[in-house]
C-alpha cells in the first residue's frame, strides 16, 4: 500500500473487490475473537502443572514400554470371565432397555398416543435418560444395588432407553398412516393395529437400532467396572492400581478385540438385514 505514494490518476476509477461485506467481516472477526478469547481463558486458568506437561512424552513412552510385551498368560481365566461378563451386561442391558423403551416410545409417538401431556412426559423421560452418562447411571445404580454386574446392567439399560426410545418413536411417527387406518376401519382391536399396522413398518428400524445400540453398549460396558459396576473394567482398574502394566495391556487388547469383533458382527448382520 505504501508503494503507491505517487497519486494515481486512475485510482478513483479502480474498482475494489472484497470477499465479504463489512458486516460479514465484522461478524467473522467477532466469532474468531470469541474463540481465541475462550481458548486464552482456558489456557491461562486451567490447572496444568508445567512440570507434568514437560514430562508428558517421557512418561507416556515409559508407560508403553512397561506395557510391552502384554502378558497373555493373564488372559485365562480372570480376564476371559470378565470379558464374558461384560458381553452379558451389554446384551442384557440392551434387552432390558428395549423392554423399557418400547412403551415409552409408544407414548412419545404422536400418531400412536394422541394425548399431548403423555407425549411430553415420555419425551421428558427420554431426554432425562440421554443426558445422564452411563458412568453416572452406573454410580447411581452402584449406590442402589451395591457393586456388581447388576448395577452395570441397569446403568446400560437406563442410559439406552433415551437413545432407543427416541429413534423408535421417530420411526413410529414416520410410518404411513394407511395400514393402521384400514385396520381400525375394519374394527381391529388396539393390539392388532399395533402388530399388523405399525410393527411391519418399524421392524427394520427396530432391528437396526437394536444392533447399533448393542455395539455402543459393548464399548460402554467395558468402562463401567471403573466405578464398580462389573465387567472387564473391574479387572482393568485392579491391574492399574497394582501397576501390573503387562496385565493392563492384555486387558486393553481384549477390549480392543471385542470392540472390533462387535463392530464387524453388527456390520455383517445389518448388511444381511437391509
Amino acid at each position: 500500500m505504501s508503494a503507491t505514494s505517487i497519486p494515481d490518476p486512475a485510482a478513483p476509477l479502480r474498482r475494489e473487490w472484497r470477499r465479504f461485506t463489512p458486516a460479514q467481516r465484522l461478524s467473522r472477526w467477532l466469532v474468531w475473537l470469541v474463540v481465541v478469547a475462550a481458548l486464552a481463558w482456558a489456557v491461562r486458568s486451567i490447572d496444568i502443572i508445567p512440570e507434568f506437561l514437560a514430562d508428558a512424552p517421557e512418561q507416556m513412552a515409559d508407560l508403553l514400554v512397561r506395557m510391552w510385551p502384554p502378558d497373555l498368560a493373564h488372559y485365562y481365566p480372570a480376564v476371559h470371565a470378565a470379558l464374558i461378563e461384560t458381553l452379558h451386561i451389554a446384551t442384557l442391558g440392551t434387552i432390558l432397555a428395549f423392554a423399557l423403551a418400547v412403551p415409552v416410545a409408544l407414548l412419545a409417538a404422536r400418531n400412536v398416543c394422541p394425548l399431548r401431556p403423555l407425549n411430553v412426559l415420555a419425551q421428558f423421560i427420554l431426554v432425562a435418560s440421554r443426558s445422564v452418562n452411563s458412568l453416572v447411571w452406573a454410580l447411581i445404580f452402584v449406590a442402589i444395588f451395591g457393586p456388581g454386574a447388576a448395577a452395570g446392567t441397569f446403568a446400560i439399560a437406563f442410559r439406552s432407553v433415551g437413545f432407543v426410545g427416541k429413534l423408535l418413536s421417530e420411526a413410529l411417527e414416520e410410518t404411513a398412516p394407511g395400514p393402521a387406518e384400514a385396520l381400525r376401519a375394519a374394527g381391529a382391536p388396539w393390539g392388532a393395529v399395533m402388530l399388523k399396522g405399525f410393527w411391519p413398518q418399524v421392524q427394520p428400524a427396530f432391528w437396526g437400532v437394536a444392533l447399533f445400540r448393542w455395539d455402543i453398549n459393548v464399548r460402554e460396558s467395558a468402562v463401567l467396572g471403573l466405578v464398580g459396576a462389573g465387567g472387564i473394567g473391574v479387572v482393568l482398574d485392579d491391574a492399574i492400581n497394582y501397576f501390573q502394566w503387562d496385565r493392563v495391556a492384555t486387558v486393553l487388547l481384549a477390549i480392543l478385540a471385542v470392540v472390533v469383533v462387535a463392530e464387524v458382527v453388527v456390520t455383517r448382520i445389518r448388511a444381511r438385514l437391509i
Partner: peptide, 14 residues
Amino acid sequence: LHYVIVAILFVKAL
C-alpha cells in the same frame, strides 16, 4: 478405546 480408558492411562502417565 473408550475415552475414559484413555483418560485413566493419561492419569497414570501424566
